[in-house]
Simulated assay, not measured.
Amino acid sequence: MSAVPLLRTRRLTLQQFTEADAPAFFEIMSDERTNTFLPWYPVKTPDQAAKMLTDLQKSGWFYGIFLEGRAAGYVSLSGTAPYDLGYGLLPAYWGRGFAAEAAGAVLARGKALMPYATATHDRNNPASGAVMKKLGMRYCYSYEELWQPKNIPVVFRLYQINFDGSDSVYPGYAERYPHFVERDV
């Protein structure tokens, strides 16, 4: 993938976190509620946050979501299959459409560079699934994984959007874990 381009939406600016944003990034990644349904534990120190940011920025596009100059969360899109979309917001910004707005801008930018994008959410976090549906992603299947490093079983729902006009479904998680299709998702 190319460098992380600056993106603007009606309400948001999406840009890479800088050193000046380190306190805001630490606030996001140390917040218990923000990180409840994410694979990692909330960070405890600014140094842990700095290492996490370095690691996340190596995996593809990793944007800070800024509203009126304040970091509200992040959105990411990996540069290799399964082209995974991810996002997290501080609770003060939940329920206002910011995740879908930010993720939609990133998907629009990535559309020319990849055949599809996937996203997964913990079945116990239906609000994240609502964001995926709002983005035009379709539910494909669910699978159970022993989530690391938290070491807990989680049922994930996989959503996908195809940019190449195909009706293909990313098979990777279905091949690694027992999978099934849920009704009424």
Rank of each mutant, 00 (worst) to 15 (best):
R109P: 00
K150L: 00
L146D: 07
Y116E: 03
R157Q: 15
A102N: 05
L113A: 14
Y170Q: 08
S142E: 06
A119H: 03
P115G: 08
A119Y: 02
P115Y: 08
A108P: 04
P171C: 00
M114G: 00
M137R: 11
M114K: 05
A108H: 13
V154S: 08
K134I: 07
P126Q: 06
E144P: 11
I161K: 13
K134W: 06
C140N: 07
A103P: 01
K111L: 02
R109S: 02
A130N: 12
Y173F: 15
L158C: 03
K133N: 02
P171L: 00
V155C: 09
N125R: 01
S168W: 06
T118V: 11
I152P: 02
L146R: 15
A119K: 10
R138F: 09
K133A: 01
P115W: 08
P149F: 06
R157I: 02
V169L: 04
G97N: 10
W147C: 14
M132T: 01
Y170L: 01
Y177W: 12
Y116K: 13
G172F: 06
R109N: 02
P178K: 06
S128Q: 05
P115A: 10
L146K: 15
P149C: 01
W147I: 14
I161H: 10
Y159W: 13
K133C: 01
D164S: 10
G110W: 11
A112R: 15
G104M: 01
R123Y: 10
S168A: 15
D164A: 10
Y173E: 09
A174K: 09
G129Q: 07
N162F: 05
R96W: 07
L113T: 14
L135N: 07
N162C: 14
S168Q: 12
R96N: 11
E175L: 12
K133V: 03
D167G: 12
S128K: 05
A119W: 01
G165E: 01
A100G: 11
Y143I: 04
M114S: 01
